[in-house]
Design a protein around this nucleic acid. Structure first.
Lengths: 273, 273
DNA sequence: CTTCTGATGTAACAAGGTGTACAATAGAGT
DNA sequence: ACTCTATTGTACACCTTGTTACATCAGAAG
């Protein structure tokens, strides 16, 4: 806003070419933030000197200072949501962190990426679910949801890794949740499965994660800290979105299975209502 | 995404300083888009040459090309919202539902109520954690977090309810997660524990829940549906908030335990970093 | 301990960018 | 038509930046 304000305050004192320059930078701010004097001059169809004079007219020492100001402006815009100021009850910073983490999950997980991650889960022979510690809730959510809509979903516990995984083979899919400190057993198991030809779907927190080099089918989440530990909320959300997408892909097959499950529940009187 | 992809595909071939560079540009993308070789090198604490080598390692001709790519990426991001309406159409209702569920968790869980639920967990002799199906992720999150900061935390599985609970007595606390259809075993177990004099902390979805009549220490959450199933996100958030509050109450005792846990992890080489 | 390899830093260089002095130009007023 | 002034373009000096060649250093292998 500050740039537009600057222009507005002196806009009646602008010369013709300066006005053209102003119009150009308002229409496409990247001319200022990413461009330089030469490109901007070319775009407007004027000389480079006029660009510099435009900057000084706005009150800056030169083009460089104007550019810096424009860059600061967009940087501030990007970081604002997290800095949002509010009253200081001790729960609110947590609320902020979690809410923005939730939002970022949906930014990362556009529909096409979600499709790319869910499709293998719909078609795989077996689905193996691996996780570290903080991501365990996500793994549970995925296993629980997925096993209600398809068969052969296995949660692999740390202490039973070898025994359970020995049947894995090509055509299977392994979903690996792991964050921040990267539990060795999860990473090792994932690497082993990848070597066996199993398709890896990774939910992790950084392109620098050891999981990221194993597969293209993955997403990187922002993980907020809640108290001393990392939150598993983003992982759980991803798990639930994956399940709902798999359900959509499987269509009637999933519905049938859910129906059969329901009759089983009824027969065993599992629920109170 | 393309930058993060680029980094991910070669992340295991990065040298130490190159990894530091990668971490820096992932954390603050403006270092790439707005910065230059000099500033990035200064930020990372390395030489300018290493920055250039990092760019070439990623497959670019040099830093300039990498910067251009980064700039293109954010330019694309800025124009995306218009496409987003179309391509993300099916995700947006879900996003709305989850975000407002998150918000409602914090509306329900004012600081005093959170205190009331967390305090018993800090002082109890034993903490028993029970759950239904969709709330299982929350139970896992609570058990996992709580057992890192205090001892005698037990997750009670459906098939082992009797065996595990027979030691419960006055002075213990049971946290029960259960929603919507109210799994019979969770409710029955909670009732039994209440009869034994165990303090019940309930996380459920309605004052009409069978759990609500057992205890005053409880909260009622709005549970959104994600696909055909109920979301466990609210339960997980409550679990994490409880843990963070217990940590605050236990103070140094919790910190000591975390420290000991850390040395154990170090000794057993549990994590990659 | 020595050697070798790869990673890192230093320094030089070429290219490109900014700012300014100065010349050219356009336009208004006489 | 002439002059004066404000505006714009040109040219140049200076500085910064990206790149590369070379020297140094650290660490693994023997």
């Amino acid at each position: 806003m500050s740039l537009k304000n600057d222009i507005a305050t002196i806009n009646d004192r602008l010369t013709r070419t300066q006005r053209r320059i102003a119009e150009a930078v308002i229409e496409d701010e990247s001319l200022l933030t990413f461009g330089n004097v030469t490109t901007l001059a070319a775009r407007v169809g004027t000389s480079r000197a006029s660009i510099v004079r435009f900057a000084t007219k706005l009150g800056y020492a030169g083009f460089s200072e104007l550019q810096q100001s424009a860059r600061d402006e967009v940087s501030k815009k990007r970081t604002r949501p997290s800095q949002r100021v509010r009253s200081d009850a001790s729960l609110e910073p947590l609320q902020d962190k979690i809410e923005s983490a939730v939002r970022s999950v949906f930014e990362v997980l556009h529909q096409d990426r979600l499709n790319g991650m869910a499709s293998p889960l719909a078609t795989a022979n077996h689905v193996w679910v691996l996780s570290g510690e903080t991501s365990r809730s996500g793994a549970i959510a995925l296993t629980s949801g997925l096993s209600m809509v398809r068969s052969n979903v296995m949660l692999v516990d740390e202490h039973s890794t070898g025994r359970e995984l020995c049947g894995a083979q090509k055509g299977d899919v392994a979903v690996v949740f792991d964050f921040s400190r990267y539990r060795r057993h999860a990473v090792d198991a994932a690497r082993m499965l990848a070597d066996l030809g199993v398709t890896i779907v990774a939910i992790t927190d950084s392109p620098l994660s050891p999981l990221s080099s194993l597969t293209d089918i993955r997403c990187e989440l922002d993980i907020p800290a809640v108290g001393p530990f990392d939150s598993s909320v983003p992982a759980v959300i991803v798990a639930e979105l994956l399940v709902s997408q798999v359900v959509r892909e499987l269509g009637d097959k999933a519905r049938d299975r859910i129906d059969r499950l329901e009759t089983l529940w009824q027969a065993t009187d599992t629920f109170l209502i």
